[in-house]
Design a protein around this nucleic acid. Structure first.
Length: 431
RNA sequence: UCCCCGGUAGCUCAGCAGGUAGAGCGGGUGGCUGUUAACCACUUGGUCGGCGGUUCGAGUCCGUCCCGGGGAGCCA
């Protein structure tokens, strides 16, 4: 007897199959009993009619509890009354493990309770749908870069020093050599790899010990970062736009069902096709001031400002050339306006905020040395990084994309904590 | 770190002006031959976050600490 995936039951109509899975739901109506079983690929209802299976198997139903594991055998039948359209006429019930009282019900639960039970919460249809979309997002990112000749280069997680600000570093003891820090970004290493391979990207976890309590922050999150030699800011904006529109198109093409489960409005996603609007920081400020916002030139946008800016467009908007004063040390100055950085942030629509940050990097050694001084960063641990400017320095650019923010936007989630299997937050390290 | 809101049954919550601790769901038992978060009946279930104070009497008022949620700053 073949073991069938529930998602493939249509291929087995009329056949006797085995399904290995977990009890999702139980109902009883006297001599007819129903159980909905899930196997990770989908849900199917099994029907037990007294007399049509061994008495012991029929009786086994009464001992089953929600989330008990079992093998269910029976004949597949198309059935309009069943959710999903197919049904199993059950001939055997073979329990494997009888679950204890399962804490999560289809009824309402609070956030704290669900987060404490994240390991079980993942089993719910909604969380499964999110994880499938996340899988697709990751796959699409890799395919996109691979197809464009970008080489995957894994950057280290344990690092001797900070990439960006020093305030948000997770510190750990590194054997007898003092302190090490969890990576906040693979960028600096990726720049080295770009000087070797030309076009490179990395995909991995990053860690920021920010005391941020918002719907957009995790202390551990996944980032895809790209870096390319000889790329300008304009090149990297085109790349970012291409990546995001490709990922959205792939999710739309392959995961309608999941988006439906999530009750995601598809119209805003279908609008996400190139070209994305590009506006400068200066234009953004002007627009904000026109709308009565009293933000002054030189300040960085807050969440409210990002929302206001992105609401003016029906697709992600790229805001470029921020004042250098509010950006990182490694960003190249705009030769036409040295107070501006050659950088770009991509703001997702619908109030989801920044999903990408990128820039052209400083290529000149003396300029970079001056920047380190300005930012009070120690030179010695970054000598290797300075070497990249000593040995065949070229203009180069890159960006980082936050996977959870992208997934949260695509799935229409209220908080990024649902966009990662086991979120790490300011006050949460369990489970 | 700061500002708001909250913590009562396994879960989601109600509990009025300080006066005997409640509901729905879940769990259990029984019933029902097509259920869809089934339904019906019965039933089980509490250190009211901790500590201290006011009071004849505190879930309720005050103080403090802990935990959680929402937001801010910073960022992806």
């Amino acid at each position: 007897m073949p073991v069938a995936d529930i998602a493939r039951l249509a291929d087995h109509v009329g056949q006797l199959v085995a399904i290995k899975g977990w009890v999702h739901h139980l109902r009883s109506s006297g001599k007819v009993r129903f159980m909905v079983v899930r196997d990770g690929t989908g849900l199917v209802q099994g029907v037990l009619v007294k007399g049509q299976l061994p008495e012991a198997d029929f009786a086994a139903f009464d001992r089953l509890t929600i989330e008990s594991s079992l093998t269910l055998k029976g004949k597949v039948r198309a059935e309009a009354r069943a959710p999903g359209g197919y049904e199993l006429e059950v001939t055997r019930v073979e329990p494997l493990n009888l679950a204890q009282d399962y804490p999560i019900s289809p009824k309402e639960h609070g956030v704290a309770f669900l987060m404490d039970h994240r390991h079980l919460w993942l089993r719910s249809p909604r969380q499964q749908a999110i994880l499938r979309v996340r899988d697709e997002v990751c796959r699409a990112c890799r395919d996109f870069f691979h197809d464009r000749g970008f080489i995957l280069v894994d950057t280290p997680i344990l690092t001797p020093t900070a990439c960006e600000g020093t305030t948000s570093l997770f510190e750990t003891d590194y054997l007898d050599r003092g302190k090490a820090y969890l990576s906040q970004s693979g960028q600096l290493y990726l720049e080295a790899a770009a000087m070797a391979l030309g076009r490179v990207y990395c995909f991995g976890p990053t860690f920021r010990a920010e005391k941020s309590k918002t719907r957009r922050h995790l202390t551990e999150f996944w980032m895809v970062e790209a870096e390319a030699a000889f790329y300008t800011l304009e090149d990297v904006m085109e790349l970012a736009e291409g990546l995001v529109s490709y990922v959205v198109s792939q999710v739309l093409a392959r995961h309608r069902r999941e988006l439906e489960t999530l009750e995601r409005d598809l119209a805003p996603l279908e609008a996400v096709v190139p070209p994305f609007p590009r506006i400068s920081y200066g234009e953004a400020i002007a627009r904000l001031q026109e709308m009565g916002n009293d933000m002054a030139w030189g300040e960085d946008f807050g969440g409210d400002e990002e929302t206001v800016i992105s609401q003016a467009f029906d697709r992600p908007v790229m805001v470029h050339r921020y004042p250098r004063s509010c950006k990182a040390f490694y960003m190249e100055a705009d030769p036409e306006a040295p107070e501006l950085a050659l950088c770009v942030d991509m703001l997702a629509p619908e109030g989801y905020g920044e999903i990408i940050g990128g820039s052209q990097r400083v290529a000149d050694l003396e300029t970079l040395l001056a920047r380190l001084e300005e930012h009070h960063l120690p030179r010695e641990p970054l000598e290797w990084y300075l070497d990249l400017r000593r040995f065949g320095s070229v203009p180069h650019s890159g960006f980082g994309l936050g996977i959870e923010r992208l997934v949260a936007w695509l799935c229409g989630l209220k908080h990024v904590r649902e966009a990662i299997p086991f979120p790490r937050l300011l006050d949460r390290l369990y489970p």
